[in-house]
Design a protein around this nucleic acid. Sequence first.
RNA 1: GCCCUGGUGGUGUAGCCCGGUCCAGCAUCGGCGGCUGUCGCCCGCCGGACGCGGGUUCAAAUCCCGCCCAGGGCGCCA
Length: 445
Amino acid sequence: MGGGSFVELDQQGSWRRTAYAGEVNADQEGSEVIVFGWVQDVRDLGGIKFFVLRDRSGSVQVTLPRGKVPEEVFEKFDKLQKEFVVGVKGVVRRMEKAPRGVEIIPNELRILNVTKHPLPLDPTGRTPADIDTRLNARILDLRRPESNAIFRIAHVVLQSIRAFLSQKGFIEVQTPKIIASATEGGAALFPIAYFDREAFLAQSPQLYKEQLIAAFEKVFEIGPFFRAEESHTNRHINEFISVDIEEAFADAKDVMRTLEELVQHVVKEVNEKCKAELNTLKQEIPVPELPLMRITYDEALEILRKKGVEVSWGEDIPTPGLRALGQELPGFYFIVDWPTATRPFYIKPYEDRPHLCESFDLMHSWIELASGGTRIHQREELEKRLVEQGLNPASFEFHLKVFEYGMPPHAGWGLGLARLLMAITGRDNIREVVLFPRDRFRLTP
RNA sequence: GCCCUGGUGGUGUAGCCCGGUCCAGCAUCGGCGGCUGUCGCCCGCCGGACGCGGGUUCAAAUCCCGCCCAGGGCGCCA
């Protein structure tokens, strides 16, 4: 079934777009335009036929009244099926009865490509599809207004992050994604074959970005990282985009300010530039007021205790605890002063109370968006902490020796881009905000 | 990795608990035909499904077992 009769394809030839569908308006009455796009909908009333042409900008109705368009165009209409790729050369006409009060009367219709029906999902989204079905046909899914809006917002988020950090004097860097050592501990690494050696996909730019501030003072990176965790949740994927900064002559408090200002800036930009997209998503995201609330780890535990959730001191807060915390604190906030034992080796303990460290998590409700802190900048101390965490300093020599070349005090953070997008777009599954998510069970498309 | 839930046309679902009334309903979708103002068009006709394998039974979409797949939760996540 499906597919219809054989369709002879036309060439785009010398045709070049002169207008975007969504921008064609009644003021252009009488002018000839060339539009390209996809057939969103076909309505045939016999003596008058309509189809809706959609492109990246929106859509416009193409109307074919019998006798008012060339006979071959009128006949060619019958071949059209949903999502065919077409070009139309025609005249803009003001028409109250048409969507947006405007339509195109075609003089020529070119069918540039066909679709194979049945399609695996409905690109208009009227008939819903499961997330799994949608990801299997991701390109079709991305034609749905909601999915499309998410990634238009993602673009604005990325742009505004780059603009903000650049304006603050950070320079953008790229660190290696292929690394030699699996000895950083913690998150599991993906091993890969590197010629005749084993190598690994980087799980974080941490060590390299720290090294780089000893030359550039303020750096940031937006890039992919890889964790071989067997997590199967709505907020974990195995390849993720991390936004990282590192800054010399700064501590946790300084980079927290940078982070909250960044978040505020991004939300402001999205509100200004993505009104239509937010509307499509039925999403409102208030610009957070600064400074964001800061609660200590101890205070978080106290809040949880009052809610009947017991967390023994020194442990990371388990997921049910974070969910409970998120009920109390629905917006953006920081959890600061974590027990030293819960944090990685490079985080600096407080001088006067070494069981706590100069660290923070940026939260949105119950989801951790970012994590950071003041770093240890003295080699001896770093080595001591490595040993305390059961790691072997010898395998960090390439990193440790940099601390002998004049390493300034420094601090930084890493922010999960997709987690931030979840907060901004109001999605509760990270797969919604990643074009081609990689999770434990999904390697294609 | 553990626990829970589920898998019915291309898509989304009803039916399953309590086996027969199911040659499986609904919506969307696809095909053909009709209609000169549709816009989630309308009207008529037609098309397409019980994840895979085994078992119980006179009889299985429905009960049992195994496998595969998916969703949710937890753990893990320097």
